[in-house]
Design a protein around this nucleic acid. Structure first.
Lengths: 302, 302
DNA sequence: CATTAATATGCACAAACTGCATGTTAGGAG
DNA sequence: CTCCTAACATGCAGTTTGTGCATATTAATG
């Protein structure tokens, strides 16, 4: 079984005929025809239906195309990795960060190891997606929010956790629309932006915020979005109250565009957390982790 | 890049020398020496340190051994899959089941598709591990417990969920040690088997059971185990009260060895749930899923 | 230093692969 | 239906790749 075999089969699948495939593979048609024959003989099975013109993949081969693409990519990656004697020391790292953290704290955190000259890829996703990327090794380190009393981090027994800092989830609203909010409040209603029940912040809202709002007024979800950045925008327009990680709202509060309603409504302390797989062996990830850890300890000492 | 190349390199790594590797590979030493040279020339890099005797893997090659093993297995699997024109219809399915479910309901559920003649592998694990196996495609279908009001199933947006049936998590204790329990109760104490906080049943205990026990007495965790089967055993010996999925305790209750304390202590209704990845394309998994679903609908109609 | 085990290289032969020329056959148009 | 063309297969000759045996070189050990 060779990368070449896989690529020959994929070429036929992708270009529709032996003739087109042989041109793409820079081989004459007879040689290509014989190549495919050799592969079939080596495997002891027919891979193509030649009674049709152009020849067609057998269905069981068609079922394996995705697998072949994966293996083809994997073999190419292996070649590159084996060739890269010194470059292994400059391998990349993939960070999966919650949207709100990606927009605020992640750049500063990444700055902590910028001098290590590591090719750093940042992916922004919701919390569960970040963790899934860690679980499936598509990312090396995740930055997520954690809330004391909320659900444990899923898969925690597979993970190593590091507390980087603290951020609060605070209620904010447009400063210049406060009278609209006060009118709703006088009617006993609280218009809010709700996060979906199936995302972390939605769970936090439902378990730790909304129950405490019933003493204030009837919660009126005006909109539901999983994206904190979108929730922030709706708060800015005075559409409804949004619970936003404080760093994300900080600039707007400073210029007076948004008001922090924490004195009247509940805010939730959150921990900014890094997570990686416990069995991570990559020295690169280890270096980054150590750097994040060292500067987090230094910060908590201040 | 060929499977052969990978296997040659792995042979050296595993047998410690070219000489030993060539014997394992059924090739003469000179041919093997030249083979390795050809691979190095094709890649344009040295893979071994020959200044030592026996020759040693370069460290960057050593770092890729696991990857090579994975690719080697993947290529062999592909060959087998391509060869297996008709056997694709008899491919195996991997079920990941929570320990307690594996010991009770899973055999009956598997029996529902026994006539489909599918090679079925059952793996027993804790709940999060079951889900991780699904997330990482090491298993096709998971059987887990779900509790209304507890955390959503992690990764639910990636999953398709099917409710199969209902089971209760019930408090049980040894019938012949009830006077010991009553003495503790009279002292205002409740000796319990605790599940660890980082597993699902531990979370259910802490959130939905223990808070309701404070009206009864002071909760005394006497032991902590994640394994429901172990908890059951401790309840049988009168060590402490254990919360056990009802089917697991059913036989002991029927013969009077265990007492179901649900009339005095809280029991929790649970849903027996099947989960698979939403993007599952395997017709085999689809058939099994449909069969489980059809018989679950039939059962809920009774 | 001598000896042995481990890896490399020369030689000759076998096996695998190629393009060009040609043969065969499916598919579509008239 | 026939004819034509595109697509795949096969013969032939030449090139490239790969092998084991015999031998050379070199690290490691006593």
């Amino acid at each position: 079984m060779r990368l070449e075999w896989i690529e020959d089969i994929l070429a036929v699948a992708e270009h529709g005929s032996f003739q087109a495939a042989c041109e793409k593979r820079n081989v004459s048609q007879p040689a290509f025809s014989r190549r495919i024959r050799q592969i079939e003989e080596a495997l002891g099975v027919s891979l193509f239906d030649r009674s049709a013109r152009p020849a067609r993949l057998s269905s069981h081969v068609h079922d394996q195309l995705d697998r072949m693409r994966d293996l083809s990519a994997g073999l190419r990656d292996l070649s590159a990795a084996l060739r890269d004697v010194e470059g292994m020391r400059r391998r990349r790292i993939v960070i999966a960060s919650q949207h709100a953290i990606a927009a605020t704290s992640t750049p500063e955190i990444i700055g902590r190891f910028a001098d290590l000259d590591i090719d750093t890829r940042l992916r922004s996703a919701n919390r569960d997606d970040c963790l899934a990327q860690i679980m499936t090794r598509r990312a090396d380190i995740a930055f997520i929010h954690d809330v004391a009393g909320a659900q444990e981090i899923p898969g925690a027994e597979f993970l190593e956790i590091l507390h980087i800092g603290s951020e609060a989830l605070i209620p904010v609203y447009a400063h210049d629309r406060l009278d609209t909010l006060n009118q709703a409040y006088a009617r006993g209603e609280l218009p809010v932006i709700a996060y979906p029940a199936d995302v972390f912040l939605g769970q936090v809202q439902r378990r730790m915020i909304f129950p405490r709002l019933t003493r204030v007024g009837r919660v009126r979800p005006k909109l539901e979005t999983a994206l904190t950045l979108a929730a922030l925008e709706f708060a800015r327009t005075g559409f409804a109250i949004a619970w936003i990680p404080e760093p994300l709202a900080r600039a707007d509060i400073a210029i007076g565009r948004l008001v922090d309603l924490s004195t009247t409504l509940p805010s939730i302390p959150m921990t900014l957390t890094a997570a990686r797989l416990s069995d991570t062996v990559s020295p690169i990830v280890g270096d980054v982790w150590d750097r994040i850890q060292a500067q987090s300890c230094a910060r908590s000492g201040v």
